[in-house]
Design a binder for these strands. Structure first.
Lengths: 253, 253
DNA sequence: CGCGTCGTTGAAGCCGCTCAATAGATGTGG
DNA sequence: CCACATCTATTGAGCGGCTTCAACGACGCG
């Protein structure tokens, strides 16, 4: 666990952080994936007024903790963030890994308290959007309101898929599904769909998929022996995309 | 499977249904759980103008199917609705059971196509809210917009909990968690938290929890032998609520 | 270089699955 | 009202996939 060094002093909601330089959603390469999608220039400027950009987070630093008061939602700008719940016994269950352009913290809008923790898995930056202000701007800008509905809706779809994966698939199908999902999301960001680096550890992959890290390791080994992927520590190379997709029987997309 | 008889002719989005009698959210006993929560009288009337009430659905009849174009979201008024995804092999994965006051279909807002099926498990009624119109009304009524954000957020929280349950718990903990969740939701509706009827079959409970129906049956038997619950077919009686809660180690609420 | 972390691999055990038989509940038609 | 068919639930026996426990190897960092 990296919780010892992890301090939440970086939260741009609390101390007014230094980055008062105007956030520019307009120039952001992620604008078509993120909150600004589908908004006109005038609307964008109102959004930019309330969005706060974070200073870089180091590996292990937290965006928010379970129990923290909900202040707003977050968009990953760069890096990788994991979100996890902590059970009574202290064990964690990873809810998701968040790549650039993806939003987190949405589940706390209702309760106004974060039930999960968010931690950077590598050096990362993010934008923070105070929810009370966002809610106000949504009243003025219908496109923004609709985009937020869509983002939450998509997150629900993703979790539905994950319920299917956890409930119906065996370890091999789980790992294959995981690789395909990561591949597709990297691809959407303009990276290679076949070669990428898994920042998260085997432990974290297994935790996310509801299996042990030994099993993850064994499945990786088997897939490699079958010529479907090539694994070198964190580096993954998908050699036979078709075969990988065929492994995933229970996926309906 | 009940798919043979199940026909979707009842959809109040398609044929203008007979129920042109004004929907009265104001008088609805569920208004404090449902969409109207926190809205003033004037706002309520605008909402009532667009909500359509369904005629009763019989057991096995569908609200919507995977592949259907998304028209709007649904609120259960009475009865019980199950939502499930269908995998390639035809096997279903139940995503959730929806009680009165709970909303479904939210995951299709983004894609505009339903990825899941919704079927009544007993005689049920519901309200349908065309989304394009709802979205318009949200612009005028900020409380409604916020309530919709909250409802989607709560759904995300529920699914996060479910990910934890599926990923970390053994069969006994899963069943105990399931009973406690159902109990709590019935209680919130004004029913007994200790005695209730499980409308869904063992098969469906198992499917939802990622275990077989035989295992569900065995766990029920074990809990009964331990004096924690009393089971008589579909009727459940929680004899020792504290013991039941103690079984659920990994739940953080 | 030595230490700690992470990943791989092996061996044994267990939880939940599969297969199967039975009983109870429900529905139907004569 | 009963005989029969069907579906659901319960219970048992054996098996298998994943976990657990353990040892070892590979990096990376001081």
């Amino acid at each position: 666990m990296q919780s010892s060094q992890a301090n939440c002093g970086a939260s741009p909601f609390k101390e007014l952080d230094l980055h008062k330089i105007k956030v520019s959603c307009s120039n952001c390469s992620l604008s078509e994936l993120c909150l600004p999608r589908g908004m006109g220039q005038g609307a964008l400027e109102k959004l930019e007024d309330i969005v706060k950009r974070s200073s870089p987070l180091q590996k292990g630093e937290v965006l928010f903790r379970a129990g923290d008061k909900f202040r707003g939602i977050y968009a990953v700008r760069s890096g990788l963030v994991k979100v996890f719940a902590t059970a009574d016994d202290g064990e964690e269950q990873i809810i998701g890994f968040f790549l650039p352009g993806e939003m987190l913290g949405l589940d706390a809008i209702d309760s106004q308290v974060h039930a999960c923790n968010a931690v950077a898995l590598e050096t990362s930056t993010y934008c923070a959007v105070p929810f009370s202000e966002l809610s106000e701007v949504c009243k003025e800008i219908p496109e923004l309101q609709n985009q937020l509905f869509k983002i939450m809706s998509r997150e629900l779809s993703v979790e539905n898929q994950m319920l299917l994966t956890l409930g119906k698939k065996n370890s091999e199908e789980k790992v294959a599904t995981f690789l395909l999902t990561i591949s597709s999301r990297y691809h959407q960001l303009g990276f290679s769909a076949k070669e990428f680096k898994l920042t998260m550890s085997r432990q974290e992959i297994g935790n996310y998929l509801g299996i042990t890290f030994e099993t993850v390791s064994r499945v990786f080994g088997r897939l490699q022996r079958n010529g479907i992927i090539k694994v070198n520590r964190k580096a993954i190379n998908i050699l036979d995309m078709v075969a990988l997709k065929n492994l995933v029987s229970g996926c309906d997309n």
